[in-house]
């Protein structure tokens, strides 16, 4: 019974996930539109533009994820890369 209860957590239902997305989208729109009411002065001119924070946040995240992804091809190794034959744990 408790298992069924757990499976029925409100976050498990797709309809609720959809609802959360809508709330999130509304919040996003709100933060940008709020700039019409509260003007952001900014320090360097361009950071006072409408939606600058939004665009800057999104784009810098995009850049970082893509950069990390690219670097991953170069740097990622299997978990036992340092382990196993090269570092016998029990001798020396």
């Amino acid at each position: 019974m408790s298992k069924k209860e757990q499976r029925d957590h409100w976050l498990d239902r797709p309809a609720n996930i959809k609802r959360l997305w809508r709330v999130f989208a509304a919040l996003l729109a709100l933060t940008v539109l709020a700039q019409l009411a509260v003007s952001i002065k900014g320090y360097f001119g361009l950071d006072g533009w409408l939606g600058f924070g939004a665009a800057f946040g999104f784009l810098s995240c995009l850049a970082m994820v893509l950069f990390a992804k690219g670097l991953g091809y170069l740097l990622k190794r299997r978990e036992d890369y340092y382990g196993g034959k090269k570092e016998p744990a029990d001798d020396i």
């Binding site: 999130f24 919040l27 996003l28 933060t31 940008v32 709020a34 700039q35 509260v38 003007s39 952001i40 002065k41 900014g42 950071d47 939606g51 600058f52 924070g53 939004a54 665009a55 800057f56 946040g57 999104f58 810098s60 995240c61 995009l62 994820v65």
Partner: peptide, 17 residues
């Protein structure tokens, strides 16, 4: 207020990303 709004935009859109 404008600082709070700037960081809210920055962070929420990072969340979207």
């Amino acid at each position: 207020p404008d600082k709070v709004l700037f960081y809210l935009q920055l962070l929420l859109f990072s969340g979207l990303a």
